[in-house]
Design a protein around this nucleic acid. Sequence first.
DNA 1: AGAAAACTTAGCCAACTGGCGAAGTTTCCC
DNA 2: GGGAAACTTCGCCAGTTGGCTAAGTTTTCT
Lengths: 118, 118
Amino acid sequence: MLVSHMAKHEPDLSRLFHALADPTRRTIVTRLAEGPAPVTELAKPTGLRLPTVMRHLSVLEEAGLIATSKDGRVRSCAIVPEALAPVRTWLDEQREIWEARLDRMDDYVMKLMEERAK
Amino acid sequence: MLVSHMAKHEPDLSRLFHALADPTRRTIVTRLAEGPAPVTELAKPTGLRLPTVMRHLSVLEEAGLIATSKDGRVRSCAIVPEALAPVRTWLDEQREIWEARLDRMDDYVMKLMEERAK
DNA sequence: AGAAAACTTAGCCAACTGGCGAAGTTTCCC
DNA sequence: GGGAAACTTCGCCAGTTGGCTAAGTTTTCT
């Protein structure tokens, strides 16, 4: 894998979480998971104006969650499914830390019980 | 299952994602995954002032990610590990939608190939 | 009692957000 | 050529955020 490709899409968790923190943007992501769509089609169900939706789309794009390309006067938006990986990884890391702690607590309790059994 | 528990069927993903969108708050969550800690101990590594950290903590608490309790003059903060479940669920849902789409595309391609083989 | 510790509240501020309407720009169709 | 479609850019606005300092409050220590 080329470094130049990695530099562009840092696993910027803050950007990712921020992008996902808006219900409109999550709706768009869910819609795009079903397949690509032009901006106007994404805007319709939201009831928001185009400039507003454009803003949401650029937040999603800057977070690396979607990719867009223009064909004629239509901009097609598509999801970038692997973009969610860093989020999943972070969640897994938290769970690992938590479980490691539970294990240590288990050990501690076991030791206490052994002491007591003497 | 009690209705009161189901009533908020839509867990507050916006609050959760927003809470996790700040690096300071993620650092606090990670620290708390290792075990409970008082406010001052959480503040130390951040280099931020206490009121600022308090604000971060209340954002985390309102998102349900941490729980706090006061013992004497010390407020102890602890993680609520199951609070991350809705985030994980949402990610899983997105993946499901995406994979269902891939399956449909597979079917489509298979059909095309069959047509061609005629 | 008096000081120190550990919050807690209040208020200030600059920057960011999410919405809007108005006015472009580029393509497409007749 | 001219109008409609589909963005795109601009600038406005109210509300939120994340940082701070200053000034409480409650407990604990001596």
